[in-house]
Design a protein around this nucleic acid. Sequence first.
DNA 1: TCTTGACTTGGATTGTGTCCATCGTAGGAT
DNA 2: ATCCTACGATGGACACAATCCAAGTCAAGA
Lengths: 144, 144
Amino acid sequence: MSDLLERLRGRGWRMTSQRRVVAQVLDGDHVHLTADEVHARAALLLPEISRATVYNTLGELVSLGEVIEVATDGRARRYDPNAHHPHHHLVCSTCGTVRDVHPTRDPLTDLPVEERFGFTVAAAEVTYRGLCPSCTRAPAQAPA
Amino acid sequence: MSDLLERLRGRGWRMTSQRRVVAQVLDGDHVHLTADEVHARAALLLPEISRATVYNTLGELVSLGEVIEVATDGRARRYDPNAHHPHHHLVCSTCGTVRDVHPTRDPLTDLPVEERFGFTVAAAEVTYRGLCPSCTRAPAQAPA
DNA sequence: TCTTGACTTGGATTGTGTCCATCGTAGGAT
DNA sequence: ATCCTACGATGGACACAATCCAAGTCAAGA
């Protein structure tokens, strides 16, 4: 995702080691990390990086549209680097695993005007909830 | 909704003035209050009620399925007393107001099997985001 | 009326996120 | 290559949401 670094530079970002490291962490797996998890992983690469900088950088990436902020549980927000292709989330109610999914239809088109109450509606997020394959098989707990 | 009090008694709840007051507050408008807002309104009726009790009672109502917990953003969770009629939520990105809405189509039917990754999908929640009428008019919270 | 354990209390604690004064440095200018 | 300076980083204080806990209280059955 050196693409990302290019785009940021193109937007006038001053490129610092901290910002590089945060971008690198997000570029890793397509897991949905919390800010503190991003900070922990970034600190492995750049031990002195501060939490404030991680929060600042994530906030900037979100407002640039490069990263999506996901609030599934009322706990810590999670950051989703897969902002290029629109998608939604499938969450396992037992273990909390999150997968990106792609429904065939945009739910925005299914909200009639009389159900919008004068709002300027910009987006629709769908959270599918259910049990992932391994939690379906072992409903209680299965360390194994 | 003295129904609610009946159901709770039927489930073995010890009926206290605190619990009665929390149920009464939720029964008011169908607004989606935060725990602190519930506490504030409850305190008008029963000044000594503590935050901890409000949190406890809300948590119990949620696990009994009488109230739905809504985590729309990284801010405070909101409590939705309209648990017995399926619906979705329209959230103002600026002020956090939540309205119940009823799309014309269930997004569950738009998630193809090959996008379910073996999950047993049980439910789909849609969160529509936008600006409410008053935040559309006053984008930066500026008093006219 | 008595008894008991479920409930309530408020203060401490944890978790998440923001603010701010100060220091450091990327990158353009010379 | 060196200098300048505005932008970014730092970390500690602060704010807010939620939970925990030990001690006191009281609803409701006997």
